[in-house]
């Protein structure tokens, strides 16, 4: 059993499937009158958030509370962090408070890995810099499996700012582990150079990474995919010359009605949120029945319950 969840790459196919299966059981709790399970009674989960992300924090908080864990929210604002306490000192403080798990969101890539060196408890990466966000990938996989019945053999297009996206990194790792094929789509400036070089743009996937390839043409990809995952594109990227204008970006890589109709009938549209309506996705698409955006939020709680249970539900030291 894994001790920390730091990367989508920490999970082998068996463990990932176990998390998804467990999440499916956890999901039934949401439909019950008593939305609570006693499994983590007496355990303490700390939400250590160095970045504002109300949705992710609330999702973890709901997950921990449904499993009867005690939850301590520790946000960088209004704590000693703003007075310059180091991550290590914060870790030692949490350790002394008896944290069994620390859920950490941090603007620096790898901060959860550093934290894991200093804590006896489990560390869950809730998004680190431009690195990873493994529970988002798990809830995305859960949503795909729930909607399409399987993951193996699915073709998933991840569209947008792949370079800066922790969601994309975690999804690439997890989806390839679970047998799906991923095509990364976006302007070449927003695709990491080595992925583009390795995958061979526009060509079939290579031996180096049979599950992933790269394409710069969204319209060419759409007719052959089962899932389109749109990534949030920050307008600030425009000022750093990643693309000329929001309008040009939306025209080339935005998902609108006509593009939605190019998808196979069964294909679904995903977005990790929060959306830039009108930039990477039009309201028509976001609100269409093929969009799973609201489901993703609900599934997030179930998946995080599963992760917390698997990390804390037994004696895994």
């Amino acid at each position: 059993m894994i001790r920390h969840l730091l990367s989508g790459g920490d999970l082998d196919a068996g463990t990932a499937t176990e998390i998804l299966d467990t999440a499916a059981e956890m999901a039934t709790v949401a439909g019950r009158e008593v939305k609570k399970l006693p499994a983590l009674r007496g355990r303490t989960v700390v939400n250590l958030f160095y970045e504002d992300s109300t949705r992710t924090r609330i999702s973890f908080e709901a997950a921990a509370k449904r499993l009867s864990a005690d939850v301590i929210n520790f946000s960088a604002k209004g704590s000693s962090v703003t007075k310059g306490e180091s991550l290590k000192d914060t870790a030692l403080t949490l350790q002394a408070m008896g944290a069994d798990a620390v859920v950490v969101r941090h603007p620096a890539s790898g901060a959860p890995h550093r934290l894991a060196n200093w804590l006896d408890g489990s560390v869950v990466n809730a998004g680190d810099g431009t690195h990873e966000h493994p529970t988002q990938a798990l809830l995305d996989a859960y949503t795909m499996r729930a909607r399409l019945g399987r993951l193996a053999g699915l073709h998933v297009a991840i569209v947008g700012d792949v370079l800066h996206s922790r969601v994309a990194r975690s999804n690439v790792l997890l989806l390839s582990t679970l047998g799906a094929k991923v095509t990364l789509v976006g302007p070449p400036t927003l695709i990491p150079v080595d992925w583009a070089a390795r995958a061979g743009v526009g060509s079939a996937a290579t031996d180096a990474d049979p599950g992933t390839d790269v394409c710069y043409d969204l319209d060419a990809v759409l007719p052959g995919v089962d899932v389109v995952m749109m990534l949030r594109v920050q307008r600030e990227r425009m000022n750093d010359s990643y693309f000329p204008s929001a309008r040009e970006y939306a025209r080339r890589y935005g998902l609108d009605g006509p593009r939605l109709r190019r998808l196979p009938e069964h294909a679904i549209v995903m977005h990790p949120g929060p959306m830039n309506r009108g930039m990477e996705i039009t309201p028509e698409v976001a609100d269409s029945p093929r969009s799973t955006i609201v489901e993703q939020v609900a599934n997030g709680v179930s998946v995080r319950m599963a992760v917390l249970y698997l990390l804390l539900g037994g004696n895994n030291r």
Partner: peptide
């Protein structure tokens, strides 16, 4: 009725797999 999550000995073992209810 799966009772895994209600067991009183969860912490004495590695995490047990949850079954369907």
């Amino acid at each position: 009725l799966d009772i895994t999550l209600y067991r009183d000995d969860l912490r004495r073992h590695a995490t047990r797999a949850v079954g369907p209810t």
